[in-house]
Amino acid sequence: MTPDRLGYLPETPSQTAGPYVHIGLIPRQAGFEIFENNLGDRLIGPETPGERIRIEGRILDGTGALVRDALVEIWQANAAGRYAHPADRQEGKPLDPAFRGWGRAGTDFETGLWAFETIKPGPVAGRRGHQPMAPHVNLWIVARGINLGLATRLYFEDEAAANAADPVLNLIEPPERRQTLIARREQRDDGAVYILDIRLQGERETVFFDI
């Protein structure tokens, strides 16, 4: 571990998660049971406050083919717009003991669908001097063929006013590209679903962030 001239250590290089990422992070999808507690497969319990929603989508490669071996993680604030983390010191927003705000899921080996049962997040404070951020879910995608995890965000179609004022969406040029982050709402028998397909490459390529 060699520091640079100023004493900083260089970050460990990323490598692809490969085709068998499920073994380590979601072993049930790989086809076996090993852990008593599978981390990240459930975001909400019966007592979690907030509007229950499902978010789902597919991931498409540069030819439009389904990416069926990806792992998607989400990180989001609670219904009041607060993250379950000590660095979030937003005053007046309660923490929910029943909501960590993090989940992980594999894309289905046949349908290519990823999905989470969660709650709709509240708006979170923006950076100092900026507007609050519109409700959003942070996504992080790793898979075979992806050398460094891809970060993006899911925003909600029915939050048009908040989206129009969102300091992150407003950075993105041309404005049409902002649409790649906005999930469309669909009402199904068992509740609201927001759908966001992610295009890794090519036409209507999703906006990915260097965070």
Binding site: D61, V124, G145, L150, Q201, V207, F209, D210
Partner: peptide
């Protein structure tokens, strides 16, 4: 080879850190 069709062609948008990036699961 798998990276050829699974790599974005457009540049990443650089974001100054907000709470969404500075926090994470515990």
């Amino acid at each position: 080879k798998t990276s050829v069709l699974r790599s974005p062609r457009l540049p990443l948008w650089s974001l100054q850190n907000s709470l969404s990036e500075m926090t994470g699961p515990v």
